[in-house]
Design a protein around this nucleic acid. Structure first.
Lengths: 143, 143
DNA sequence: CCGTTTTCTTGAATGAGTCAAGTTTTTGAG
DNA sequence: CTCAAAAACTTGACTCATTCAAGAAAACGG
């Protein structure tokens, strides 16, 4: 797990100013991947004390734009964030409890799939969401 | 394009009551695939006069649950609906203007992809969204 | 250390969708 | 055809996630 100085370096390398909210958000997402914005706000406040929700929204947007975080938006859920970027992996979402797990992409680079008909689009990414029931939910439901 | 009596039969076959809002919504989605809820409300009102937005939300939910419509939710866009159901096709979304096109699935049945690691999930669907720039946007941007 | 620029705080506002109570419509049974 | 029960629709308030806006505070190059 990266340390605070690692996060500072990441921010500098991305030409972003180093602030405590940014370090706290980076740290929170590294420690709790697939968290939604509200959870991240809670984790950040546990570490720093009062931080406005707006600051967290701003930070998440800046870090996502800089490529330090990735935003995922499964239908039916608020936006979630993860720190694993650049490897074009995919996700499995549980239809019952909403938990998300990572799925490695066999190809690794986007777009990892070719459309049967691209309709003239210049396709740069193929995003895959697998839907199913996680092991915890399937056992509790079938019992 | 199906007629009003076709829509009535579809509703009866799905054990749903036949009402004018339902026929109008079915017709609207058949004629304007990938429309968002607000556009559908507008189209329905053009045909029927006053219809509450709540009625359209209720109808869309009932028709989706009955399998007559499919709901699609590209990140950054409100929910959209289409009448092409049952063939597990996918979508291309333009990053610039948001327009959506259908992409046939080579396999046809869900799940059409196998995850490299299913993490113990029982996967029933693999949803693919291709992201890119449509031909209209790429020509206007490059000029 | 200072000024500029960026970021954060505060608080209001927006958009999509849901909740709830009451009225109307549909439809199967008589 | 008529009626009652169930389902659907209307109205209007409300929630949630997110954004907008204006001013205060912090970062950092010089």
């Amino acid at each position: 797990m990266p340390t605070a100085s690692d996060f500072k370096r990441m921010l500098r390398d991305a030409s972003l100013r180093v602030t405590s909210p940014r370090i706290a958000v980076l740290s929170a997402v590294h420690q709790h991947p697939h968290s939604d914005t509200d959870s991240i706000i809670g984790i950040v406040r546990d570490g720093l004390g009062a931080v406005s929700h707006q600051a967290v929204y701003d930070v998440l947007r800046a870090l996502t734009a800089a490529g330090l975080l990735r935003r995922i938006e499964p239908p039916g859920s608020p936006a979630r964030y993860e720190a694993r970027v650049g490897d074009n992996h995919h996700h499995i979402v549980c239809r019952s409890c909403g938990v998300i797990a990572d799925v490695d992409c066999a190809v690794g680079e986007a777009p990892c799939l070719t459309a049967s008909d691209d309709h003239g689009f210049e396709i740069d990414e193929a995003e895959v969401i697998y839907w199913g029931i996680c092991s915890g939910c399937s056992t509790s439901t079938s019992s």
